[in-house]
Design a binder for these strands. Structure first.
Lengths: 347, 347
DNA sequence: TTGTCCAGCGAAAACGTTTGCGTGTTGAAA
DNA sequence: TTTCAACACGCAAACGTTTTCGCTGGACAA
């Protein structure tokens, strides 16, 4: 087990100075061809590679991006990571991930841990708890220290930084319009609490679509699901609420803000003897594995997670590599368009 | 925008030496209480945090773990990452992820990139291409340089390192036995090519279970799916093969080595008018989202991804923090037991 | 012989830490 | 008054790089 070789060791072996070795490896014309050859041969033999940490210290940049997301076992977030990793890697950056687990404290601690030199910039999506508490000091402090942040999906206006978001409102609107156009009269929305902007915006899109068809939104058709029911363990509870919704109204269309709500709604509908899409049509937000492989397969609003990741990484790296522009405090908000992917749950 | 403050700057401001500041912050008794107070107050005011990179260089350890996996948009792998991150964080480590994308070259390049000082050790699962080529030099080189590796799930015997695997053989056997005990006579297995050990081992478990019931494995019931059909795009092709399988045989049980094969098989069965689980029972390996929310929900063999990640991280960190034991070249292979989760696709 | 020039190389600083050891100042004991 | 701890602090090296600058010696011209 031989440790990695350093410039110093090569220098000692070849009886030259460290600087000579360094220059020789860079093919500097300051060094004679003879010496260059000798050094390069030796370095190759011992498989010399410059130490990244030393380089980071010297250059004051780590070529590493920090990602902070609420959850990784999640189709959307892992797609985003994939996108980030793709362009980061292409541009010579590594990616280090922190999981906030939807907790404010973990978000703060993790960010502090990474902000002390380990990374050059952040790409993050805010945790639910943070959104609830509306305490964003850790973001501002990070930015104030000169570390750029790019937020995606779950963002807040208060923070001055680049953002990549999905057009939740229009995505939802598009979906509900589709339902309306194919004849639905009584469309329910299954959504989340309002403090998540997605819940709010998608509901707004739903309302706008209805209004375009001169339908007054019926509050009893707007089902707001409590947050904890999103976990797989509480599907029973969720089913109960949906059952209630079905029995209180005669619904012929459902717009769900996520896949789980959608497939569960389909399950409940089927139990009630309703055929999808004949008796009732269903559209879901977020295009994931469930949508593709459920029966019937779900028509969804795709939010293009990977594309969001790619864009976020591009924004961040561009900012990192144009330090001179940094004082131009002009931040961009990129909106990724949604796409309606039609499958078998709609006519 | 004020940059992060350093010891040097504090020293200059307070008109003491750098070492005094460093010691004062560590509450060294070498430094007078007065000075300590002064320094600590100043440091707190300016929110001083030691620079991680400098510490890494000095200590020759980064407190960072490198993960290299073939794919991140995958329930199992993201569960593993979650497990790794959990214990890594608890023990003061960060996690940096590299994606091989099932490509040998990317695996090699990424590993080289990370091995040059960026991380203290690796946790990885081997890419398909690497398994196919059977070229493991990059693993051995990394290990030889004194960087420990822990492999999980997709491992090879040739490499001397700690490993965390799932008991594929017995997991499969357990599943098939369950089918046999509930009355299945004609059980098909839908599996992958043999070069993936999972394909091989799970098939072996299938065979062993049959033999326990004195049934001779029928080759026409063993369907090996080509690799590329695993992608979501090629489901049609997959369905065709399954259709063929169904029409050539009268099957009353299916064991699939992954969720996609299982739900697709159910879909095909339903199309042929078969009722799950009455006419045909189905069990899948790998417990993911699809299994829970398909209709009927799938009985699966859970491989406990998060637990695997946790165990892998523990193994690695233990090894990192017991350098003295490092010369004791004794490597551990931890087997995570599978669990049969019974849902509605079996009787 | 002296001076000039340049090729070829090395010394040193810098990035931000930590830490062993040296040193100057105090106060008290002899 | 001298001596000597104890105390409080600073110096310097080290981690592995890169890069600027300066030095040396030899070739060549005058």
């Amino acid at each position: 087990m031989k440790r990695k070789i350093t410039l110093k060791q090569i220098a000692r072996e070849l009886d030259v100075s460290i600087s000579t070795v360094s220059k020789a490896l860079k093919n500097s014309h300051e060094i004679s061809q003879d010496t260059r050859d000798k050094v390069q041969a030796f370095a190759k033999l011992y498989n010399y590679r410059p130490n990244n940490i030393a380089l980071s210290l010297k250059n004051r940049k780590t070529k590493t991006i920090g990602i902070m997301i609420p959850e990784i076992v999640h189709h959307f977030f892992s797609k985003v990571i994939k996108g980030i990793e793709l362009v980061a890697n292409k541009r010579g950056y590594n990616v280090i991930v922190g999981l906030s687990n939807e907790s404010f404290d973990k978000e703060v601690i993790n960010m502090e841990m990474l902000a002390n030199g380990s990374i050059d910039g952040f790409i993050l999506s805010i945790s639910k708890e943070t959104l609830l508490q509306q305490d964003y000091h850790h973001f501002n402090e990070t930015i104030n220290q000169g570390m750029p942040i790019v937020m995606f999906d779950r963002v807040v206006d208060e923070i001055q930084c680049d953002k990549v978001i999905v057009d939740d409102l229009n995505g939802a609107k598009k979906a509900v319009l589709k339902l309306l156009k194919t004849g639905c009269k009584q469309i329910a929305i299954i959504t989340t609490n309002d403090y998540l902007s997605i819940g709010k915006l998608r509901t707004e899109g739903y309302v706008q679509a209805l209004e375009e068809f001169n339908i007054k939104p019926n509050p009893s058709l707007i089902l707001k699901i409590e947050d904890k029911l999103l976990s797989d363990e509480n599907v029973d509870e969720l089913e109960k609420e949906l059952m209630q919704l079905f029995s209180d109204n005669s619904i012929d269309g459902i717009f769900a803000v996520n896949e789980l709500y959608a497939v569960t709604a389909m399950k409940v509908a089927r139990r009630l003897g309703l055929i999808v899409p004949n008796d009732i049509q269903v559209i879901s937000f977020s295009d994931g594995v469930l949508s593709k492989h459920s029966t019937p397969s779900l028509t969804t609003v795709s939010q293009h997670g990977q594309e969001m990741g790619e864009k976020a990484a591009e924004l961040l790296i561009n900012r990192l590599e144009n330090e001179e522009d940094r004082d131009v405090e002009h931040y961009e908000t990129v909106v990724i368009e949604t796409e309606l992917i039609e499958r078998d749950s709609t006519k």
